[in-house]
Each structure stands twice: as C-alpha cells, then as structure tokens.
Simulated assay, not measured.
Amino acid sequence: MTDTATKILDVGQELIQTRGYSAMSFQHIAGRVGIKKPSIIHHFPSKATLGVAIIRRYRDTFTSQLDAIKKNPQTSAWEALDFYFSPYLHFAQTPDTVCLCGALAGEIPALPEEMRLEVKQFMEDHQSWLEGILQNGRRNGELTFSETPARLARMLFNTLQGTLLVKRSTDDLSQLNDVIKVIKRMLK
C-alpha cells in the first residue's frame, strides 16, 4: 500500500470515528491529506470501497493483536481482558473518538451492504474472542461467573461499546472507568 493510500485510510478512519461515515467526504479527506479528490478515487473508486478498506484494516489490526494474546499460553485471562480494555480507555481519553465499528453501528441503516457485513463481522469476532477468554479464564480458575461465556461476552462487549457513546455524550471519563471496575468485580 502506498503512503498516500495509508494517509487516506488514516484520515478516513479518524473522520468516521469522530464525525461518522455520513459526515465523511472525499473532499474532507483530500483537504486533510493535501491531495486532490481524483487521487482518492484512484486508490478507492467509491466511498463504500474506502469504507470497507478502513473497516478491514481496523479489523485486521485488532484480530492479529487479539489472536496473539489468545495464542500465548503465558497470558492470563486478566492480562487479556486488560489488553482488551486498553483501546476503550484510549478512545475515552479523547474528546470525540469512539470505536470505528461502534460509530458505524449507529449508521447501519445508511451504510452500503458490504460495509454492514464488515461491521457485523467485527462485532462477532470480538464477542467470540471475549467468549474464548472467559471460557479459558473460568477453566483455569482465574475468573468466576455464573452466566454462560457467550452471554457474558455479549454483555461485556455491548457495555463497553455503549459506554464509549455515553462518555462521548457526557464527556465523563469516569463512565468507562466505573464500568471496567464493575466488570472486574463481577469476574473475581
């Protein structure tokens, strides 16, 4: 991938995470990257193509990181969960940024079908990863909970995603910190 394509993806992702897909335009991106609109079209022929590329890159980055943690036998369930919480904490410390796929989920009815599928896959992948960490943590005696790992994974994922949106609305970082504290207490 060229430097220009990477910059386009970076700016496009930032715009989606702070303003939303509907508010992102090739004109905004071109101005921020310092190129003309046709240069974007050369790399990404449509807004949907760009959107899919942004989501796939985002998903691939998280997937490789989460897989590395899951495959490392030295990583405890608590370390895996702390790693998982870290991007949420990072996003919460910025004034307007939320998870890319969380931002897109709010716009699902307006998204092209290929983007909807990518967002859905992101959500399913994260819940599946959390389920695996919860299963292993319970099996190893690190985590204690009464709910099924699948249901608990859904609850954790949905709670974290929703809390970012609430934090964005209230500008209250304690929202996320409190949620993470409660999650940790639930699992002890």
Rank of each mutant, 00 (worst) to 15 (best):
Arg116Cys: 07
Val119Asp: 01
Glu107Lys: 00
Ile180Trp: 03
Ile180Lys: 05
Ala30Glu: 13
Leu134Pro: 14
Met186Ile: 14
Ala5Glu: 07
His126Lys: 10
Pro112Ser: 12
Arg151Asp: 15
Lys71Gln: 14
Asp67Trp: 02
Ser146Ile: 11
Glu14Phe: 11
Gly137Pro: 11
Ala92Val: 05
Ala5Ile: 05
Asn158Gln: 15
Glu114Trp: 03
Thr97Leu: 02
Thr49Trp: 07
Tyr88Pro: 02
Ser25Met: 09
Ala80Arg: 13
Leu15Lys: 03
Leu81Gln: 03
Thr170Leu: 10
Thr2Phe: 07
Asp82Cys: 03
Arg139Asp: 15
Leu89Tyr: 00
Ser64Gly: 03
Ser128Asp: 15
Leu117Gln: 07
Ala48Asn: 02
Thr159Phe: 06
Ala23Tyr: 09
Leu89Asp: 01
Ile35Asp: 14
Thr4Pro: 06
Ile69Trp: 00
Gln65Tyr: 12
Arg32Glu: 14
Asp171Pro: 01
Leu111Glu: 07
Tyr21Trp: 05
Tyr88His: 09
Phe157His: 14
Glu142Tyr: 09
Gly12Cys: 08
Arg168Phe: 07
Gln175Trp: 03
Phe83Ala: 10
Ile133Trp: 08
Asp82Thr: 07
His90Glu: 11
Gly102Lys: 01
Thr159Ala: 15
Ser86Thr: 04
Leu134Gly: 13
Gln135Cys: 14
Met186Phe: 05
Gly132Arg: 09
Pro112Glu: 14
Ser22Val: 10
Thr75His: 05
Glu118Trp: 05
Leu100Arg: 04
Lys184His: 11
Ile35Lys: 12
Ala153Asn: 10
Ser22Met: 13
Thr94Gly: 13
Arg138Thr: 03
Gln27Trp: 10
Leu156Glu: 07
Phe157Gly: 08
Thr144Tyr: 14
Thr4Glu: 15
Gly51Phe: 03
Val33Ala: 07
Asn158Trp: 01
Thr2Glu: 13
Ser76Val: 00
Ser174Ala: 07
Leu187Asn: 03
Thr6Asp: 12
Ser169Cys: 00
Val166Leu: 12
Leu104Met: 06
Ile180Phe: 08
Arg154Pro: 10
Pro112Ile: 09
Lys37Arg: 06
Met24Arg: 04
Lys37Ala: 05
Asp67Val: 07
Glu113Ile: 15
Tyr58Asn: 10
Leu50Phe: 10
Leu134Met: 11
Arg185Thr: 13
Ile55Lys: 00
Ala103Gly: 01
Lys71Ala: 12
Asp125His: 03
Lys36Phe: 08
Pro95Phe: 08
